[in-house]
Every structure is written in structure tokens, then in C-alpha cells.
Design a protein around this nucleic acid. Structure first.
Lengths: 355, 355
DNA sequence: GCGAGTTGTTCAAGTAGTTTACTTGGGCGA
DNA sequence: TCGCCCAAGTAAACTACTTGAACAACTCGC
């Protein structure tokens, strides 16, 4: 049994087995056929007994590969937990480890502000640890954009979730198929008979380009139907006026019969505003959300929403990074992968009252 | 601008500034007063221009400290997200980075089974990367228990959440004050007038010692009241029979007027069973949960529960590990920190119907 | 007794820096 | 003009290994 407080080194193993340092190294790396079986056993046994384990810091220095991927995500909802889960499982297949950092502040969800400088400092910590690649949620695109140059120079592959950078030929991206999903949402409402429809978007700041796309595709899909109108609202920059905007929508002269909220978080705001105004869902107003967050099915009534495939998104993001690391063929430029999503019809949508 | 694909080394900086390697190293580490100010500027400028950044792998090798702490948690609910958030923020103050691995499988929540061998392999990955400390959720105590010896030998401080190991003098632990919280739950129900009370525990497997403590403290608190009775149920080993057990409770000859579920997950089962049996909450049956998970307030009716302080738990766990690393005084044995929790009264509890 | 194969050895260089101990050059006082 | 000191800077050893090359025993068949 080794002395407490002493981390066993290869040297200790070699001495215990009575072989040279390099022999021990080779045997433990699996170069077994150069040595007698009895010697191999001795070395393996000694390593086992001393509790020696390979020092990946050394490998990292020598090969330039640390077998880690940095992941930068916001800290809050079940969508990101699922994404992370996908990332973990895919990276594990290649014996990679994600190192996750969280930007933004918990409990200001989902409309927290991110401190750009702080975010950059955190990414720096990842790069200082020589992560082989990065998976990013680019909350403040601009802030990270400046950093991307350095990443490209260092050949650190980057995959961005829900924010398209492929036009700039800078990073791969993975996102939900916004066009198709928005069309499905619109179709659902139109089929139910709704013609006066509201859309509650998020803050639509730089890092929320998905919200803009989602809203625009939705608007386009609704207005392509003759006689249907959309009117859109959005939260303020800090996302602090959610309830007010939700109430505003419900009292608008347009008298919308349905509201599409670009995420379930905004849908929840509509629920709250509806309760205050004593409007019933779906009798007085239909509500449809997006993301199928974990609370969606437990709302009263259960929320009709669009289920994204966060686990798959996470997996694909990880795969993208791993593939770039494997091939390192800069030849083919950045790609964008679009993942489909599924409409989940629950009880918050119904035909409008005939008035 | 450096050539693409070339990670700048200290050597490059030194050459660009026209100084020796060691001079560059010293200056970049802040040992400025040993050198002429003009030389310092030259080195700093060169480092900036080349985009050089310190390689923490090297520091890790040399000092034996990687400034990382491994975190092993289950992958699912908001409690653990909050714990993780606390861990992150506390570690950040010391410029440490958590490396989080998830054991267990998503979407079997909360009753997933953990593959012991897989869990050990994952911890191995952390140790191979030479994490300085560990924060553990010991799902399968036994599996990790064997590993603890190695950790002690390596002087890797360990903090365990919600599972007391301090009796074994092996690891620090942090947990919710189960005794006080269980008493508060019992008191709340007794004060409302309930006298026939059920308790739905979790699986109570080895890694869920918190569930056992929580239930026992609750039973004790209830029975200390004259005329009050408790009857307890638990889930099966795999946690697959939740709905059945919940229904069984509601149909029990005892005719309980209130149910304490040891977590909000189990409380949700009661809600589901109640709906099937057409029992109203709280009119027919009061329900009280534990944890105040993110869905608790959105249940219908909003769930009365006990709000743990997961962010604080995470913080304290991180602090414990950091303190051990700072002092390395093995002198004082493992401690257990108990964090208080707060009863949140919502609408799922009410006085029993007078029958 | 010679070459060949097996089983190891030592040596040296590499990874990206940090740190100890040293050298160099100039200015200053005696 | 010698000796001394200090500022400024450097060579080399060190972290824990990996890896290629050269080489040394020993055994075996021929």
C-alpha cells in the first residue's frame, strides 16, 4: 500500500517491477509483444498495486490533444440540460470529456443579461486548459465573434448552437429547423380556424437570432393564408416587461384568438396574464409555445408546443467537433445542420369561439 | 498575425521580443521588477501580438495542481442544476473550474439505474486528468466507496452531497437539515388538523440514504403527536411502480387525509394518481412535497413543498473542497454541514374535511 | 561458432513551460 | 585601477512521461 499523500509515478511502478522506465511505459501503453509475458504481468501488477494511473496532462502536452471539449451554455432550462446530455454521451464514445462553463446568471431566466467580459474570461479559462474544440451558445454574438479569429488560428473547431455563423465561414452550426417548425405551428392554428393571431417573441437581441428567425418564418406562414393576420410583440432589451407585454397582447384591439410564444417561457407569461384577466385557455384564447420544456406538460391546461430534439442537437454538435478533430480537413467549409422538431398538441389550443 | 494553425509558444514570444526563454517566462508571470521596463513592454507586446496564452497543462504538471474540481451528479432535475450553479460560482472565485460528469441516464428520471462500472470509469477519467478535488453525488455508495481509498491516498479532497460519510471519516458531506425540515413538514400537516398521514418515500436504495433519513425523521415527528398515525410506502428498486404505489396510498384502508412525498417527483405521482381516482387536491387529500423543483409552483394546484437551498449547498461543497486544498491539514477530520430548508406553503395542503 | 531472434537495456530528444543558480556588464567607492 | 555590488538576463535542471534508435545479453538452430 502506497504512503498516503504520494501520487505514484511511472518511476515507482518501474522500480517495483524491476524494469526500466521505458519498458514500463511501453508495456502500460500496450506494446506488449516486445516483452516477455511474465515481465508484462509484473509491470501490470505493480501498476495496479500502486494505483498508478496515466497522467493525461502529459499526454495532452505531448500530443497537443487534451481530449476535452469546452461547452459554453446558459445555466437554466431543461432544453439546455438535454442538449448537454447529448453532448456528454456523444463525446463519451470518443473518450472525450466536456468541460462546461455557464454564462449568465441563474434565476434571471430566461431573460438574464450576460456580462460580456466575464464570458470572455471564462472562455479564456477553457483555452488556457487547451480544450480541443468548443461548443458554444453565443448569447452575445459580438463578444465571442472577436474571439473566433483566435480559435480559427489555433485550429480549434467550433460548433454553435442556434445561431448561424456559417455565412461567415467561421463555425459549424446546429439548429432546429425554424422554417419548417414555424410553418407547422402556423398550420396548426390556421387549421383550427384562427385568423387573428398574435406572436410573442423574446428579446431579439443579437444572441437571439433564433427568435427573430422563428418569428419571421411564423409571420410569413400565417400571412400566406388569405384573410389571416399576425401581429407581433417582443420583450424589452432586458426581458423585464414580460407580463406587461403579455397582458397588452390579450387586450389588443386586434382581439387575437391565438398566441404563438416563441418559447414555452413566453407561453407561461401568457398563461399568467390570462389568469389575471380572467381569460380561459383555450376557450378564450389559444396558446402555443416552443421547446416543450419540462414544465410544459404540467401547466394547466397542458401546453401545446413544439418539441425540439435537444439531445440530438447536443449529439450532433459534439459529432461535428469530433469530426473536425479527426480529419482536420479545412477543405470543406462550415456547415449548418437543421434538426426537425415535432408539434405536440395538448390542450392549450382549440378552435376559436365563433363570434 | 500568426500563421493559421500554429499555436504560439513561449519560445516564439521570446524570440519575437529578443529575450531568453526564461526572461519571457518571468516577465509574463509578473516578475517585472527584475527587468528593465522597456524589455517588459517588448515581451508583453510580443505575447499580445502573437496571441500567446499560458498553458495550464504545464502548470498542472509542474505544481501538481490543475485548478479543477471534478463534479459527479445525476443529470436531471432543477435541484441539481442549482447545486451545479453554486459550485460553479464558488469555484470561480478561486479561479478553479469544475469538470462535471453525469452518471445515470437522462429521461429515466428520477428513478434511473446507474451502471456502477460506467460510473467508475467516468471517475477514472477525472482522476486521469488530475482533478484536485471531487464533489460527489454518491448514487451507488458502495461502488464509489471502494474508490474512496484511492482518493484518500492521493490526498484528493472529496465532498459528498446528501449522503453522510463523515462517520467513516472518509469525506466531508453537505446535506439539507433533514431532521428540522421533516419536523416542519409534520408540524404543518398536524397544525392543519391531519391525523391520518401517509408518506411516499423514494426507492431507498443505498445511494438514497437521504430518503431514509427524511422518512424516518418525518415518521418520528408525526408519531410524537398524540393520536396521529403515519404509514409509509416506498417505490420498488427500479422505481418503476410509482403510479401504482401512489394509487395504493390513496385507496388504503387508513384513508389518509394527507401525503408527504419525499421529493416533488413523488408528489407529482400522487397528483397523477389523484386525478385518475378523481380525488381533488387539497379538498380530498393534501399533498406536500420536498425540494421545490421548478415545476412545483406550476402544478395544479401549486404544490406546498420544502425549498432546499441547492445553490448554497453547491457553494458550500465547493468551499469545503477548496479549503481542504488550501490548508491540506488532515488534522481535523471530515465534517458534515447541514443546510436549513424553508417550508413553502402553496395550495396543495388544507385542513382535512371534517368527517 | 555464427547469425538470427527474443527480451530487454540505455540514451537522447521531445512536449511547454518554471525555477534555481548562475553569469555578465556597468557603475561606484577606495 | 582594483574590488564590489547590483541590475539584467541566461543556462540548465526539473515536471512526468513518450518514443525512436542503438545496443547488449541470451538462447536457439544449423
Amino acid at each position: 500500500m502506497p504512503a498516503s499523500g504520494h501520487v505514484p509515478r511511472l518511476k515507482d511502478v518501474a522500480e517495483a517491477a524491476g524494469v526500466s522506465l521505458s519498458a514500463a511505459s511501453r508495456i502500460l501503453r500496450g506494446e506488449v509483444d516486445r516483452f516477455g509475458p511474465e515481465t508484462c504481468d509484473r509491470v501490470l501488477a505493480a501498476a495496479q498495486k500502486l494505483g498508478w494511473r496515466r497522467n493525461l496532462l502529459v499526454s495532452g502536452m505531448q500530443t497537443g490533444r487534451t481530449k476535452t471539449v469546452g461547452v459554453v451554455i446558459p445555466p437554466f432550462d431543461s432544453f439546455w440540460v438535454d442538449v448537454l446530455s447529448g453532448v456528454h454521451s456523444e463525446l463519451a464514445t470518443a473518450d472525450y470529456l466536456p468541460i462546461t462553463i455557464w454564462v449568465g446568471d441563474l434565476h434571471q431566466m430566461p431573460h438574464f443579461e450576460m456580462d460580456e467580459a466575464e464570458g470572455l474570461k471564462k472562455i479564456s479559462r477553457l483555452l488556457d486548459r487547451r480544450v480541443d474544440g468548443l461548443i458554444l451558445w453565443p448569447s452575445v454574438g459580438a463578444a465571442y465573434y472577436g474571439h473566433f479569429r483566435e480559435l480559427v488560428e489555433r485550429n480549434v473547431p467550433v460548433a454553435v448552437i442556434d445561431h448561424e455563423y456559417s455565412e461567415d465561414r467561421i463555425a459549424d452550426s446546429i439548429e432546429t429547423d425554424e422554417e419548417e417548425s414555424a410553418r407547422a405551428v402556423a398550420q396548426h392554428l390556421l387549421t383550427l380556424g384562427h385568423r387573428r393571431i398574435a406572436c410573442l417573441s423574446s428579446r431579439e437581441v443579437a444572441g437571439q437570432s433564433w427568435a427573430i428567425r422563428r418569428r419571421k418564418f411564423f409571420e410569413r406562414a400565417v400571412t400566406s393564408e388569405r384573410g389571416a393576420q399576425v401581429k407581433s410583440w417582443r420583450l424589452n432589451e432586458k426581458g423585464t416587461n414580460g407580463l406587461d407585454v403579455a397582458a397588452e397582447i390579450l387586450r389588443d384591439p386586434l382581439q387575437p384568438t391565438a398566441v404563438f410564444a416563441v418559447t414555452d417561457h413566453e407561453a407561461r407569461l401568457i398563461y399568467q396574464a390570462a389568469e389575471r384577466l380572467r381569460l380561459r385557455i383555450p376557450e378564450d384564447i389559444s396558446v402555443i409555445g416552443f421547446a416543450d420544456l419540462d414544465f410544459a406538460a404540467d401547466l394547466a391546461p397542458p401546453l401545446t408546443t413544439v418539441r425540439q430534439r435537444p439531445v440530438e442537437i447536443g449529439r450532433r454538435a459534439a459529432r461535428l467537433v469530433l469530426d473536425r478533430l479527426d480529419q482536420a480537413d479545412l477543405a470543406d467549409g462550415p456547415t449548418t445542420i437543421r434538426i426537425p422538431a415535432d408539434l405536440i398538441v395538448r390542450n392549450s389550443t382549440a378552435p376559436p369561439r365563433s363570434t
